[in-house]
Structure formats: structure tokens, C-alpha cells
Amino acid sequence: MKRTLPLFPLNLVAFPYQNLNLHVFEPRYKELIYDCIQNQQSFAIPSYVKNKVEYGTEMEIREVTKEYSDGRYDIKTRGKRVIKVLDMENPYQNKKYAIGAIEEIPNKNNGDLILKEEIYEAVQEMYDLVEVDNRTLSMDFQVFDIAHQIGLSTETEYELIQLTEERQRQRYVLNHLKVLLPKLRDVQRSKELIQMNGHFRKYNPPQEF
């Protein structure tokens, strides 16, 4: 479906279903948020990656936690769906901000249970290796739920958001975790060796000597 949305480009990737708190201070975006509140309208955060605005996420304002006297806002938002910016007018008519023609990117929620279990085990090991206390992963997770927690760069997050099927996203993050975990294991071994330095240890000499 094609329609228009106010655009709030940021150098980050916001994912569907993600809660994102924003402090809005630039004049153009103060006006954008004011208009969205007044019109009960959502807006889009297209990711400003690779020096262009194209893919992003439609966001809804869940709560205005603070409105400042100078027009700044603290707001709580939540991602709704992935969008692609087809065209934009910047600034739009008599506004300070841009409005873009967007299309909604379809999402096929066709996750694979085996891949999901592999990701679950890998993420739990990652939590243990980086010593994240009291964090567990529920088995009803979707890839977008964990995408900010597994060490992806902004560029790889941007690639992830363009995948339209959950199974594709599962394979993508699992490949990433298979590269990440050996590095984390090496770091953990190095920490253990450093901690043992100076302690008396028993070594078994080679049998031939």
C-alpha cells in the first residue's frame, strides 16, 4: 500500500515491534512531532545509512513523557512495520520537515523452529560469555526482537531490515552468531588466563622427556 508519512531520518535502524525513546530537539522535528500528536498520525524513521534515505520503519507515538516550554519532546515510540521511501519532498510545502511517499514492505512470518532453537541456544551462550546478568530469552521471540542485542553493525542491521521473510532473517542472524561466538569464547579464555597469571599451577610434562 502506498501513502505518505512525515520522515524523521536517523543514523540508526529502528525495527518493527521495537520500543524507542526519543528526545526531540531540532526545530524541524519538534514541528513534525507536534503535527503527528495533533493529527494522531504515525511517522517514519528511515535509516540514514550509506548516505541515502530508503528503508526504515513506521513508528507510532505511544506516550509523550515530557513536553518542554521550548517545544522539545521526550516521547516513547514503537515500530509498526518496515517501509520503503519511494519519493520525498524536503521540506514539504510550508513545513520544516520532509514528507515522503512510502510503500509498506510485506512481512512473511514463516519462521523455522529448528533455526529458532539454534538461535536461542547461541544467544543464551552469548549472554553467558558477556556476563549479562538475569537475562534470558523467551522462546516466542522473533528476530527483530533480538536484533539490537547481538552485536550487529548499523550496516548489517540495515541489511537485515530489508529481508521480508522471518526464515531469511533467522539464517542471517544465525550466520552472524556463528562468527561472533568463537570470538567471544577466545576473549573469555584470555580473561581466564589473565586471572590465573601468578598462581601456582600443575603442568604435566611431555611423556618423552
Rank of each mutant, 00 (worst) to 15 (best):
D74H: 11
D74Q: 12
D74T: 04
D74M: 09
K76L: 14
T77C: 08
T77W: 09
G79W: 07
K80S: 08
K80V: 15
R81W: 00
R81Y: 12
V82M: 02
V82R: 13
I83Q: 02
V85W: 10
V85C: 03
L86M: 11
L86F: 10
D87V: 03
M88I: 03
M88T: 10
M88F: 14
E89A: 11
E89I: 14
N90V: 05
N90R: 06
P91R: 09
Y92K: 00
Y92Q: 01
Q93C: 03
N94E: 14
N94P: 00
K95Q: 08
K95V: 01
K96F: 12
K96I: 00
Y97H: 04
Y97L: 02
Y97T: 02
A98F: 08
A98R: 11
A98E: 04
A98Q: 05
I99M: 12
I99F: 07
G100Y: 10
G100K: 11
G100R: 09
G100V: 09
A101M: 13
I102G: 01
I102W: 11
I102E: 02
I102V: 15
E103G: 04
E103M: 10
I105Q: 06
I105S: 07
P106D: 03
P106L: 03
N107T: 08
N107I: 02
K108M: 11
K108I: 15
N109C: 01
N109M: 11
N110M: 05
N110P: 05
G111D: 04
G111Q: 09
G111R: 10
G111N: 09
D112S: 09
D112R: 06
D112C: 12
D112L: 06
L113T: 12
